[in-house]
Design a protein around this nucleic acid. Structure first.
Length: 799
RNA sequence: GGGCGCGUAGCUCAGCGGGAGAGCACUCGCUUCACACGCGAGGGGUCGCUGGUUCGAUCCCAGCCGCGCCCA
């Protein structure tokens, strides 16, 4: 064994061995309580980031821990077709060649994306393996594979038959670049500088005018009303009268509606149901027409008459010029407001009225709200339950159709007579008229529509497979904050709707890793750190440790510091093991004959209990910190140093190996490779650590948990000042073995006395405060009294 | 506009009512027979600011000031 532990090579060897020996495999026929983690399937449109590694590290720690505890574990891998994301990514690649997706044709695009899939899909799975993630790779699923596709079709038809899916002409978020509708959740709001134009709309009878403020003057062409707040005194007399829309000179009514913000602009709002979501709702309630003057390409449409074909900016200028010439442009002012953008291509989203497929949410949401309210699904940290509930309780219908070619095609067929047939597979004839001339709906489904089925579609649903029976519902799902609505909420309601059970009991929202500058890691902005930068030089174990160490804060800035700490821990373990192995073989059996041996066994067991509690609470940062302290302080600094003089005794070595085995077991879920490598070097070791049983509680040595206190106190004093306090028996022996004191032990006694006198004074002052003694908790006062006694005793010991 | 989180040592972060902590970095000492990628010691902080509650506040409350995120 080399004095320096080098993870390179070792890690890969174990990853291969574990997988080849089938130790990652989930067996539905095997015994044991189940523990299931469905790893959120990454998009095939990219490679992994360190953020993914963090997520994978905490999942794998939980999975390995449960596997060792004898659970029947399934750690499910897969990847996501990621509809618009992949569509946009491929679009960017094609654009460099001067082409676009639609140039390829629908089949050509499918072929192109297959290549893409093999390339990125392969990279992703090899990155999973490189981190030591013990996923059952044989079960890798893809959200567009044949079985999964069938599940999505069943889901759609089910919802259609329940009356939840419907097609309607409503306002949608339209991405003019990707040429598709988006759901509300796929729109990013960003603040932008704009100009607010105040335009006068004359009353039809010429008796005055009403001024509105708009940032989109081009849409004036599609105005169908002006609205004011019903309680707004300024405009009360205008309600019910007609005004003339500038440029198009159309007569439209002035209406009253409570949704108008009185404080915005002049308090009068132009109503354009065809191009604004709020106006759309107001329009529907007032029975107004839905005129559109902007086309799917974001340019002015034919309906814009002489302005057809112009950009909105140019059209807006023309409209304002028109108003200005007639004295109807009152003023223009700077205005900063939030504008919707496509989250994938960042184009400005165009609200347009068009037919799309929708999922009615209210009835589906109700049981999913109850699951969280009643604690069947728990969020960690708890506050995210509130975030989930706030959204679910106000959830709006979900636009599920997309006008791209990548995704599950909506299973709806139309005949020439306009009849609609909905079926899981292509029907032979129209369900209404029997016509064989069927044309399938061109649209595909929102990628999240299929992701919603992940916890059971991966297990073979809608077939009744052994996997489905065994591994649904699952246990824990972990994800980033922004995925709560997109995925978590949808998995819960779809699981409840189709199977009647929540998909998991725990939702763990993990921290979002920032780059060292405090910016979000993003591959497109070049602010991401490639996992290879950590995995290459430090190895997977150190990377896992370092990432877990930092999961207690919400948005930690990435630094190599904690990974370096992990590397040190691996190296320390390695060398501690070398010490024991070089001392000679012995069977691993706890046969403690001295207090420090009983003490380390007690310390390991106490840490085991605390570590278990930490993991149960998903507190990985503290869990990992405990292992570091146990290894460095307890095991190496005190235990190994104190038994060194007796390592020739076989019983001492036997106990040491037993202790080391327990230590390795505790560390394995966090640092699987180095622990397995050491394990395999231990004498007479035949099993694999990955499937070795988790340590049972060991209470028989608990009485000695504090047995080294005296020696440790003496060591602190001696190391600080050179002063030796009188020790006897075991404490003296351990002190001398660990500290190896030299010199006369006189040291700076006077300085120590001074330090202790100060402590005594502080303590006495506190206890002399009647209000403290009267008001503080009794145990606090008692604690202070004991400290005072301790200081006085130490002062006496110095003579 | 609504909501949430975070400001603690040079850096990354713990602590969250009773004497300010860790790792890294820095200074000093030590080649000591597992590890010098080691061991030991040390310097370094008005715990963002201002009020309040309390015998006692980094911790609780309120208001500011910065940073970040989510929703609309």
């Amino acid at each position: 064994m080399d004095p320096l532990y080098k993870p390179q090579g070792v890690e890969q060897r174990w990853q291969q061995t574990w997988e080849e020996e089938g130790l990652y495999g989930a067996d539905p026929d095997a015994p044991g309580e189940t523990f299931v983690v469905m790893h959120p399937p990454p998009n095939i449109s990219g490679s992994l980031s360190l953020g993914h590694c963090l997520q994978l590290s905490l999942e794998d720690t939980l999975v390995r821990w449960h596997r060792m505890r004898g659970f029947n574990t399934l750690f499910q891998p897969g990847y996501d077709h990621a509809g618009i994301s992949t569509w946009a990514a491929i679009g960017r690649t094609l654009a460099e060649e001067g082409r676009n997706q639609r140039d390829l044709g629908r089949e050509g695009f499918d072929a192109y994306v297959q290549e893409w899939l093999e390339r990125y899909g392969g990279t992703i799975m090899s990155q999973f393996r490189q981190l030591g993630a013990s996923l059952d790779y044989r079960r890798t699923r893809f959200t567009m594979d044949e079985g999964y596709y069938r599940a999505v079709m069943r889901w759609f038809v089910h919802l259609y038959e329940r009356g939840f899916v419907y097609r309607a002409n409503r306002i949608v978020n339209w991405c003019p670049l990707d040429q598709t509708a988006l759901s509300d959740l796929e729109v990013e709001h960003e603040d932008e500088d704009d100009t607010l134009s105040y335009v006068r709309y004359p009353l039809a009878d010429g008796s005055g005018a009403i001024t509105i403020a708009t940032v989109r003057p081009a849409t004036i062409l599609a105005d169908v009303a002006v609205a004011v707040h019903p309680d707004d005194e300024r405009y009360r007399e205008f309600v019910g009268r007609e005004v003339v829309v500038p440029f198009v000179e159309r007569l439209v009514p002035v209406i009253a509606d409570e949704r108008v913000e009185r404080e915005f602009g002049t308090g009068a709002l132009k109503i354009t149901p065809g191009h604004d979501p709020t106006d759309f709702e107001i329009g529907r309630d007032h029975g107004l027409a839905e005129l559109t003057v902007i086309g799917p390409d974001g340019l002015m449409s034919d309906a814009a008459g002489e302005l057809a074909g112009l950009t909105q900016e140019e059209a807006g200028r023309r409209v304002l010029d028109w108003a200005s010439e007639r004295g109807q442009l009152e003023k223009r002012e700077h205005y900063r407001h939030s504008v919707g953008h496509c989250e994938r291509c960042h184009s400005r989203v165009e609200p347009l009225v068009m037919p799309q497929w929708w999922l009615a949410m209210e009835e589906l949401a109700a049981p999913a709200i109850a699951s969280v309210k009643e604690g069947r699904v728990r969020f960690t940290p708890e506050r995210f339950a509130r975030v989930y509930l706030d959204w679910m309780e106000n959830v709006r219908d979900w636009c599920i159709s997309r006008q791209i070619w990548w995704g599950q095609r909506i299973p709806v067929w139309y005949c020439p007579d306009g009849h609609v047939t909905v079926a899981e597979t292509e029907p032979a004839a129209c369900g209404d008229c029997g016509s064989a001339e069927l044309r399938q709906e061109e649209d595909v489904l929102d990628t999240w529509f299929s992701s919603a089925l992940y916890p059971f579609a991966t297990l073979g649903w809608p077939d009744e497979t052994p996997e489905l029976a065994r591994y649904y519902p699952g246990s824990v799902v972990t994800t980033a904050r922004e995925i709560i609505f997109l995925w978590i909420a949808r998995m819960i309601f779809s699981g409840l709707e189709l199977i009647g059970l929540d998909p998991y009991s725990d939702v763990l929202i993990h921290s979002t890793l920032l780059n060292p500058e405090g910016k979000r890691m993003s591959r497109t902005y070049g602010t991401a750190i490639d996992p290879e930068e950590a995995l290459g030089p430090y190895g997977a174990d150190a990377t896992r440790y370092g990432l877990l160490k930092v999961t207690s804060s919400q948005d930690p800035r990435f630094s190599f510091g904690t990974i370096e700490e992990g590397r040190k821990l691996a190296n320390k373990l390695w060398n501690a093991s070398r010490l024991l192995l070089m001392a000679g073989a012995a069977e691993a059996e706890a046969r403690p004959s001295s207090v420090e041996e009983r003490w380390i066994l007690a310390r390991i067991d106490a840490t085991r209990a605390e570590f278990e509690a930490d993991l149960a609470a998903f507190d990985f940062a503290h869990a990992v910190q405990r292992l570091y302290r146990l290894t460095f302080d307890d095991f190496c600094d005190w235990y190994l140093e104190s038994i060194k003089p007796r390592l020739a005794e076989e019983d001492v070595r036997a106990t040491a190996f037993a202790a080391l085995e327990r230590l390795l077991k505790l560390l394995h879920p966090v640092m699987p490779h180095v622990t397995e490598e050491i394990w395999t070097n231990l004498p007479a070791r035949e099993t694999r650590l990955i499937v070795a049983p988790w340590p049972e509680p060991q209470a028989e040595f608990a009485a000695d948990l504090h047995a080294l206190d005296e020696a440790q106190t003496a060591a602190r004093l001696y190391r600080r000042s050179g002063v030796r306090i009188e020790l006897g028996g075991d404490s003296l022996r351990i002190f001398e073995a660990v500290v190896r004191p030299s010199g006369d032990g006189q040291g700076d006694v006077e300085a120590e006395r001074g330090r202790l006198r100060k402590e005594v004074e502080r303590s006495e002052r506190m206890l002399a405060n009647e209000k403290f003694v009267a008001n503080a908790a009794p145990e606090v006062v008692e604690g202070e009294r004991q400290k005072l006694e301790q200081y006085r005793a130490e002062l006496d010991a110095l003579g």
